[in-house]
Simulated assay, not measured.
Amino acid sequence: MKKIVLFASGNGSNVENIIQYFKNNDTISVVGVFTNNPHAKVIERAKNHGITSFIFDKNQLQDGQVLEKINDLQPDLIVLAGFLLKFPESIIAHYPNKIINIHPALLPNYGGKGMYGMNVHRAVLENKEKETGITIHYVNEHYDEGEFIVQHKVNIENCTTAEEIADKIHILEQQHFPIVISEILNFKF
């Protein structure tokens, strides 16, 4: 059985989508959800599926306590799905090429510190982009600079608000993220 741990900071809709995608899978399983936000809806979502949540603060992320919990679970893949903190180099070094992230834009555009969620969608709208998309990439020591795994695009010429862009991006995330995770774990990437 291949094991996934998920990291999220907020609502957790991508986390729930991934959990549901692998729920009846005989070869891949979600074994834990980590969050830095004790009020995040992702905790409730994980609980509803019988998956243990680990709540931590920034210090525990940096001082090795989170790495210890991850090691206890022995994951084959660590998935950042709406996780807003910079991932520590100590964990990246311990799990090389086994940590992936989804970004709500076509990197390298609209990436870096502070570029997440609605911040990205507002910037895309303000720059009058005709298309945007998602980038799924490996995590390295720099925000949004890890090797790309895949990008998917969507036309946004008819979008007049950042919320409309966010809705289109959410659809792409829901469609593609679980499939890419499965392909990585089955060595298709």
Rank of each mutant, 00 (worst) to 15 (best):
N158D: 15
A162F: 08
L125Y: 01
E145R: 10
Q151V: 02
K130R: 08
T161E: 10
I156K: 06
V139Y: 06
I165P: 07
E131I: 10
F148H: 12
L125A: 03
I149R: 01
A162Q: 05
A166H: 04
I149V: 13
V139Q: 00
H152Q: 15
A166F: 00
I156T: 04
G133H: 04
V150K: 15
F148T: 11
E164K: 08
A123N: 14
M118S: 12
E163F: 02
H152S: 07
G114D: 11
D144V: 06
K130Q: 10
V120L: 11
T161N: 08
D167L: 13
A123Q: 14
M118C: 09
E141N: 14
T135K: 07
Y138A: 03
N155L: 07
K153G: 08
V150R: 04
G114I: 06
C159M: 00
E147C: 04
T160C: 09
G146A: 05
I165R: 00
V124E: 01
I134D: 02
Y138Q: 04
M115S: 05
E157Q: 14
M115I: 09
H137T: 04
K128A: 13
Y138S: 01
Y138N: 01
N140K: 04
D167S: 15
Y143F: 14
R122C: 13
G114Y: 13
Q151C: 03
E163R: 05
V124L: 14
T161F: 07
H142Q: 15
A166R: 01
G112L: 07
V120I: 11
G114P: 10
G117R: 11
V154E: 02
G146M: 00
N155E: 06
E126N: 12
V124F: 05
Y143K: 08
A162T: 03
R122H: 10
E131S: 15
N119V: 11
I136C: 04
N155A: 02
K153Y: 06
E164N: 12
E141C: 06
T160E: 10
G146L: 02
E145M: 14
C159R: 00
E129T: 12
Y143T: 07
T135V: 03
K113D: 05
M118N: 14
I136N: 00
T132K: 11
I156A: 07
Y143R: 09
V120F: 11
T160I: 06
C159V: 12
T160V: 13
F148V: 09
E129D: 15
N127K: 09
L125N: 00
I165S: 12
H142I: 13
E126H: 06
I136M: 05
N119Q: 14
E163P: 02
E147T: 11
E131R: 14
I136Q: 01
H121K: 13
E164Q: 15
E141G: 07
N119C: 06
A162C: 09
E126C: 04
I156D: 11
T135P: 00
H137Y: 05
Y143P: 05
N140P: 02
N140A: 03
E147K: 15
K130S: 13
G114F: 10
E129F: 08
I156G: 07
V150Q: 13
Y143C: 08
T135E: 06
E163S: 11
E147D: 12
A166Q: 00
E126D: 12
A162S: 09
H121A: 10
N119I: 05
I149H: 03
T161S: 14
D167I: 09
N155G: 03
K128S: 14
V124M: 15
N155K: 02
G117A: 12
K113T: 13
E163G: 01
H142P: 05
C159I: 02
